[in-house]
Structure formats: C-alpha cells, structure tokens
Amino acid sequence: MTAVGFSVEKLHSSAWQFNPAKLDVERGIQFHNPHPDKNISFLLARRFGQGLTRAYGWIGAMFKYV
C-alpha cells in the first residue's frame, strides 16, 4: 500500500489504517492482520480486494504482477 501512495498507521489490536498520502482519493481504508497464521488465504485476499474495489473502484486488472 505504501508503494501506491498510502501512509500507514497502526491502530488498536491488529488493525492498520492506510491513509492516502500521494493519491487523489478521499478516504482511507482499514485492514486487520491475519491470524492465527501470518499468511493470508485466497478468500481473505479476495475480501481485501473487494474492499479496495468498494473504496476506490480498483480492480485486479489495474495492477501488474512483479
């Protein structure tokens, strides 16, 4: 998220707030650390993606894999 222009703020417990620093978007978004495992499942990654689509209209095709 920092690579695309967000600043990161640790909130309570496992919550992280991502605020747009260099982007022309109006609001930030929150995500929680995965637990108990540090890896995220396909379903959780998909849920994160759905949140980004709702908040910013972003879809997977807008990104390239590196």
Rank of each mutant, 00 (worst) to 15 (best):
A3W: 04
F18Q: 12
W58L: 14
T53C: 00
R27A: 15
G28D: 04
V66W: 00
M62A: 09
G51K: 15
W58F: 13
S14E: 01
F6L: 06
V8S: 03
M62N: 08
F63N: 06
F48Q: 13
L43S: 10
R54C: 00
V25D: 10
P36A: 08
A3H: 01
G60A: 13
G60L: 12
W16L: 14
Q17D: 08
A15N: 02
A3N: 11
A21M: 11
S13A: 12
R27L: 10
A45T: 01
P36N: 11
K22A: 15
P34E: 04
L52T: 01
I40Q: 08
E26T: 15
S14P: 02
Y56P: 00
P20H: 08
F42I: 02
E26S: 15
M1H: 11
V4L: 15
W16S: 01
A21I: 06
Y65R: 13
E9D: 05
I59R: 13
R46H: 07
M62S: 10
S13V: 05
E9I: 07
K38V: 09
F42A: 05
H32N: 12
A15M: 10
L43R: 10
W58V: 08
M62P: 04
M1E: 03
P36I: 08
Q17P: 03
T2S: 13
M1N: 08
F48G: 01
Q30H: 09
T2V: 13
I59F: 02
V66C: 03
L44D: 03
W58A: 06
T2F: 06
A15S: 10
A45N: 00
S13G: 05
G5E: 03
N19Y: 05
F63P: 05
K64Q: 15
D37F: 02
E26W: 02
M1K: 11
W16H: 06
G5W: 03
F63Y: 11
Q17A: 12
F42S: 02
G5N: 02
T2Q: 11
R46V: 00
I40D: 01
Y65E: 11
V25G: 12
P36K: 06
P20S: 09
M1L: 05
K22E: 14
L11F: 00
T2R: 10
R27Q: 14
L43D: 06
V66K: 10
P34Q: 13
